[in-house]
Design a protein around this nucleic acid. Sequence first.
DNA 1: TATTAAACGATAATTATTCTCCTTTGTCAA
DNA 2: TTGACAAAGGAGAATAATTATCGTTTAATA
Lengths: 155, 155
Amino acid sequence: MEPREPDRRMELFRQKCREKGLALTHQRQVIYEALSQMEHHPSPEAIYEVVRKQIPSISLGTVYKNLKTFLDTGLLREVSVHHGTIRLEANMSPHHHFVCTQCKAIMDLEPEDLEPVKLKRKPPKGFRVQRFSVEALGICAACLAKSERARRSKS
Amino acid sequence: MEPREPDRRMELFRQKCREKGLALTHQRQVIYEALSQMEHHPSPEAIYEVVRKQIPSISLGTVYKNLKTFLDTGLLREVSVHHGTIRLEANMSPHHHFVCTQCKAIMDLEPEDLEPVKLKRKPPKGFRVQRFSVEALGICAACLAKSERARRSKS
DNA sequence: TATTAAACGATAATTATTCTCCTTTGTCAA
DNA sequence: TTGACAAAGGAGAATAATTATCGTTTAATA
Ligand SMILES: [Mn+2]
Ligand SMILES: [Mn+2]
Ligand SMILES: [Zn+2]
Ligand SMILES: [Zn+2]
């Protein structure tokens, strides 16, 4: 992300790990630093290829495990909101979606229910925008009720 | 999609198949009809489970093959834009993305470069929206150049 | 410095998807 | 109608992405 100040970024990372009770392993630091220097929103494999140059013995499993841990503790963000199985629809009219991040339920969001999406500036050099996809991410009624119930039974 | 007029919908489907030179098999019609009656933006597995009730001998491979064919011919839409491998980033500040649908390249779209995203109406009953994800889908400069070159060498 | 839970590495297992290959079926011309 | 043939289907193997298992190593901390 910030190309300058890598030391500060890593110091924040170490602090966050301490806060969350995560052991500060060499692997974790190299994985996090590699990802934060990559501008391309990489896949685990792509991160693995970079990290391997510094720790040739690291395993792909370790990369996956730590990326998951980092996601769970809010150190990283998943760009690909639906990266699981493909989801399809026959409704070809332009529209958007509500997506429950827990159960992956998808509901329609009609374009007339949304303020028009519009760029204020030009896209990156040479990029041709064809359409916008808007997703309202959140929690559906069913999942909300479920987590309510869980919370109540604990207290 | 339209709960009424299933006959009209299927007639349009058959016409589209003829146009595109796709054989009108029983399997294809059942798959398409099943999907267009499902409101839930299903996965191939979910479609398979429904279709199996009408054609118990159908194979999952056939479902996958035809969904792909339908996507290629513009009969269906893929809701999950990035359904491949997971993509990550360390940049936790709220922002959006440009996504090349060919090579899956992802570039940042800063929120100040976009008109604010806002719902005009309430979300579906009980749904709690946490954030919006906006993706400007299109073709990146590199892929555009590549397809230009391909087109030119053909003519 | 010794203890110990957490993390690592190797590898097996799982899941989603695609491919291969042989059989069946839809299309189209006669 | 029917016959030829390419397209499509079915079974199952193969591949890709991800997760789980388990014995070994390491970071935390007393
Ligand atoms: Mn939809
Ligand atoms: Mn980004
Ligand atoms: Zn839900
Ligand atoms: Zn591209």
